[in-house]
Design a protein around this nucleic acid. Structure first.
Ligand SMILES: [Mn+2]
Ligand SMILES: [Mn+2]
Ligand SMILES: [Mn+2]
Ligand SMILES: [Mn+2]
Lengths: 222, 222
DNA sequence: ATTTCAATTTTGAGTATTCAAAATACCAAA
DNA sequence: TTTGGTATTTTGAATACTCAAAATTGAAAT
């Protein structure tokens, strides 16, 4: 029974590794992501390595072992199912469920999680469009382009938002930009580093490229 | 932000104090209830006293301060509301929700709890018949007699079961004895220390007085 | 008044997690 | 090759919680 601290480290390593394309995660990055000083991360990683949850080469960074990855995916599954449950069943806002799930993910048993999964009809994406890892087996990694890389398309649908920051999410929400929303690209300007989109039934919004990079899109289905 | 350890101590002290009729709780009792050695309880109580959550007289036992009692009631409210939610919404068995709630009670925010309360329609008893403390203000203590003290009545309704042990609860469940069940007392024998009851639509069951003492009853409403 | 014993407290130590600050290693520029 | 400078690790210490075992206390029994 890993502590919630351990679970958080594993989940963070997993996500950093994703972002970095499977490579080892540098201790500095990890420490930053976990909001601890570097020495703390080093100490913790050493104990995780002793438990066989990660592979660690001093000054070479960390990566998850198979055991660690399995665990990390379980936590991630918990987290995302809980987020969806909070939105769908309890009516919380999709901009605020992340922090709630961050705690609940460590207190929810497999039994309760299975009920939640049933209740929701075995969904495969959470309120932010993030894929929910299956109970067993690997999930096919969906390849999505960001809004910043989709200048050529005029009509798109928001598929996923890769930032859990409440401020950012609330901004998007205010302007009608949420997973599932159809949008039109009105202008795309590399020079001023900005893109203007019109969300369905909302006023146009202009975003910087950094922000646009966090919004993943796909072609409209219909 | 008290740790979950602190929350568990406070809740336990509250319940012990109830059982003992408001008097101070002896360290031995507390240690037993918390499943720690006595020295651990003493150490913890000293820090709780320093935080102003309990009153402690060395060798005189502990009691909750006003601050501590308020907190204890919040945890208890969380616990019971969560139990009911698990039963009503997720379909868990009333015999198994206690342990789940024991963890979730420390991870559930006030916001989520309020939604759960709304969802359930502001209930006032949990699946075991235990009263759910209100969000604010004190609850009127309901006075219930146990089955062991109700020999004179023939027709009764189970109001509450004051034991969270999975074994005991499952036994009751198997024989159709749950909160809300109407029962008839078939025999009551002080000499052999046993009482036989017939639950509505179930076969008669014989219980020892110790077990009967954990089943609280009231007069049938209808 | 003494003895005795159970309850309680104290002491010493261990695990898990964290930080501040000093030491070290590595890569890259000069 | 020497010098930096940054990333990382190490060291020393703190907090929260716990146990084992020794010391103490208070009250009941003699
Ligand atoms: Mn978490
Ligand atoms: Mn999410
Ligand atoms: Mn608990
Ligand atoms: Mn209960």
């Amino acid at each position: 029974m890993p502590t919630s601290t351990v679970e958080n480290y594993l989940k963070t390593i997993y996500m950093q590794q994703q972002r970095a394309g499977g490579k080892n995660v540098a201790m500095g990055k990890l420490a930053k992501a976990m909001d601890v000083v570097p020495g703390t991360a080093t100490a913790m990683i050493k104990t995780l390595a002793d438990s066989g949850l990660v592979d660690y080469k001093p000054r070479g960074g960390v990566s998850l072992s198979d055991k660690g990855e399995t665990l990390a995916l379980h936590i991630l599954r918990r987290h995302r199912l809980l987020e969806l449950f909070l939105v769908e069943v309890l009516g919380l806002d999709w901009t605020e469920v992340h922090d709630e799930a961050e705690e609940l993910e460590h207190a929810t048993s497999d039994k309760v999680l299975a009920r939640i999964d049933d209740y929701l009809g075995h969904p495969d994406t959470d309120p932010h469009g993030d894929p929910i890892p299956p109970a067993k087996g690997a999930h096919a990694p969906v390849q999505l382009k960001s809004l910043a890389d989709s200048a050529t398309q005029k009509k798109l649908v928001i598929a996923r938002v890769v930032d859990q920051g409440c401020e950012f999410l609330q901004f998007l929400n205010q302007h009608g930009l949420r997973p599932g929303t159809r949008i039109n690209i009105l202008s795309y300007d590399r020079v001023v580093d900005a893109i203007t989109v019109k969300p369905y039934k909302h006023e146009p919004v202009t975003l910087g490229m950094a922000a646009a990079g966090k919004i993943l899109v796909e072609k409209p289905a219909t």
